[in-house]
Computed example of a mutant assay.
Amino acid sequence: MNFFRKILFPFAILYGFITAIRNFLFDKGILKSVAFDVPVIAVGNLSVGGTGKTPQIEYLIRLLSDHYKIATLSRGYKRKSEGFVLANATSNAEILGDEPYQFYQKFPNIQVAVDANRVNGITQLLSQKNAPEIILLDDAFQHRKVKAGFYILLTAYNDLYSDDLILPAGNLRESSSGAERADVIVVTKCPQDLTSEQQAEIRFRLKPKSNQQVFFTFIEYDSRVYSETKQLLLAEIETVDKLLLAGIAKPEPFFAYLQAAKSGTMVFSDHHDFTAQDIETIKEKAKDKIIITTEKDFVRLKGKLPKEQLFCLPIKSSFVNNKADFDKTIMNYVGTSTGNR
């Protein structure tokens, strides 16, 4: 523990005590959770950002949307709207937030909604004539006013919750004991060649309960980058002079994957709201180079930078092994829940 964390440790104890009391009240039913008559899958983490919630939600959408009517419900972090909003053709990243708008752009066959009040959000979705059959809750592991039917807890390979401390001394939103609420634990951002022995060592460190499954995923990058009007193979631009831009929690893997001798980089804070001055700075640094950014940044920059210059690199979550077991677990939960409606 470094010196700064030692100074903050007493505050972490206090924060941990407060969150423990809150969880106790929910566990005992003193604070009420609302359950719903449709399958609700909550995806979240114990730490603050950077675990790969968006690609995990997208994985679930791909798995389920051919069989069921799907809706995603997010808080809509840093959006400029209020209350419940259901995405439509007039929506943008400012109205929905970057991640929900990304879902809406990539998966036009699902419903995408935002509401800080998740109980109200689900109620509004289910009150529609075309109500969803499954609701995916984004970043909702601590949102205990909703009692989800299935909880997926994410933890990053290089930043396991078992090795971390509670805020502000560390990055945990609550004690690592909160992991006991998870049905499935997914270790994200693993090396693709993670061995069985390494997986066993991580399971030992996480200490899952006997009823909890642990899975391992890695980030798989697309072989192309995409603008609004065209796509380019990565091999085509490997030696091209370009600007790499990211406003995400942990951009280092993105830069490392695309980095080349002629590539410049620009880093912004997670969910950064790009100002007019930011746009001018980007244009000045890019000049006539192509700009490659993340999908989340792309939806915020689209329309602000020349469309022939701005590209994004899509990613997806892939399983190191046991993909079929994960899919079966999710489909079994959903099938049982819908069958009991």
Rank of each mutant, 00 (worst) to 15 (best):
I279K: 09
T338A: 03
V320I: 15
I61M: 05
Y221Q: 11
I292D: 09
T123A: 03
D37K: 14
D138Q: 10
P108Q: 07
N117L: 01
N23V: 00
I282L: 09
L245Y: 11
S263D: 13
S337W: 06
E58M: 06
L305V: 05
F326M: 08
L313G: 05
I13T: 10
F216V: 09
S318C: 11
K230T: 14
P251A: 14
L63R: 07
I152P: 07
Q199E: 14
K250Y: 12
N2V: 04
M331F: 06
P251Y: 14
Y77P: 02
V146R: 05
G44Q: 09
F36E: 09
D37T: 13
R22V: 04
Y257W: 09
L167A: 07
G97R: 13
Y68P: 05
Q142D: 06
I291W: 08
K207S: 14
Y101Q: 09
K189E: 03
L167Y: 13
K106S: 12
I135V: 15
A89T: 13
F311P: 01
D273L: 13
T294Y: 04
S175D: 11
I57H: 11
L243C: 10
R22K: 15
K285A: 06
L244H: 12
L258D: 01
T239F: 04
R144G: 05
F268Y: 15
T123K: 07
T217D: 03
F36H: 09
L194R: 07
K285G: 01
V240C: 02
R341Y: 01
I219C: 08
I330W: 04
A156W: 04
G16S: 08
L234P: 00
E99Y: 07
L136M: 09
G16V: 03
A87W: 02
K242I: 05
V112E: 05
F254I: 14
H143I: 06
I282R: 00
S337G: 00
F254V: 14
N158M: 03
Q277C: 02
N171T: 15
D297V: 10
